[in-house]
């Protein structure tokens, strides 16, 4: 009924810092979970190497995220601790107003701690699954453990002195929304340069660019990632992720991945 028209509409308003949640976990996924190798042909091998370089077994990162919408730009900073794909802990360090908000994700369960209300809230599965519309990321990035080498068949389209362009087509069984990805890979460092996401009809939906390669921890690493959506509704939106500090394959205290940690490491 129309009495609830306004109510229904409200449902579509982004909820629960979704932008943040999304971005955070997207980040974790991109950073830590591109493992597993399927085929030994050249394209697959390149992808495997790219994934290996981009991710470690564990990762401890300091991240700054700049979210630009048609209206405003704002910056968030956070510390992230992740083990593989399964466990991650994130603490917001900037802006001061949000300092100390922590998130814990273990498999598919997710908790949030907000110092202001001194409360740990378990985010219900139904809300984790709810639409992440209005952000530059889809739920697919987030909730599911997608992995390029598991979900896509790779094929080299072009190759020159600088790099490869690799086409990634989702396998029939893969639960990914995209119709096709095009990934640019720099030949020398075997690091990704960009990923273009297309829908089934071949329309470009968003572009992720990896830039500013520099030494981070034990490796050369793209320190600036830019996600640009191309939907007309999101014209002008952009999310930039900057990795300011990183350590890969270092042991992480198991303490971080318990509910107690949410409050304990909040300060």
């Amino acid at each position: 009924m129309k009495t609830t028209a306004t109510a229904n509409r409200a449902q579509d308003i982004p909820r629960l810092g979704r932008v943040e949640l999304c971005a955070l976990f997207l980040l974790c996924l991109f950073l830590v979970c591109l493992p597993r190798l399927a085929r030994a042909d050249e394209a697959a091998e390149i992808i495997r190497q790219v994934e290996e370089r981009l991710n470690g077994k564990t990762a401890v990162l300091k991240i700054a995220m700049v979210i630009t919408t048609s209206r405003a730009t704002r910056t968030m900073k956070m510390d992230s601790y992740a083990v593989g794909n399964e466990k991650s802990f994130i603490k917001i360090t900037y802006p001061g107003k949000d300092y100390g908000i922590t998130f814990l994700k273990i498999d598919d369960a997710m908790w949030q701690y907000v110092p202001r209300i001194e409360k740990i809230i378990k985010i219900p599965a139904s809300m984790m699954l709810q639409s992440w519309m209005g952000t530059d990321f889809t739920n697919d990035d987030l909730v599911r453990e997608s992995s390029i080498s598991r979900d896509y068949d790779a094929r080299i389209i072009t190759e020159n002195d600088q790099g490869y362009e690799i086409e990634l087509l989702p396998r029939p069984e893969a639960a990914v929304v995209w119709g096709r990805l095009l990934m640019g890979v720099a030949k020398q460092e075997l690091l990704p340069e960009s990923v273009r996401y297309f829908d089934e009809e071949g329309v470009l939906v968003r572009t992720l660019q990896y830039t500013e390669v520099k030494q981070l921890g034990d490796r050369l690493y793209p320190s600036r990632w830019v996600m640009t959506p191309h939907d007309p509704e999101k014209a002008g939106n952009r999310t930039v992720i900057e990795i300011t500090e990183a350590a890969f394959d270092v042991p992480i205290d198991e303490e971080y991945f318990s509910k107690r940690a949410l409050q304990r490491f909040s300060d």
Partner: peptide
């Protein structure tokens, strides 16, 4: 308690 997104996309909770 509630947690949500502020008009400036910030975390809001109280």
């Amino acid at each position: 308690a509630f947690v949500g997104t502020g008009a400036d996309y910030s975390f809001a909770a109280d």
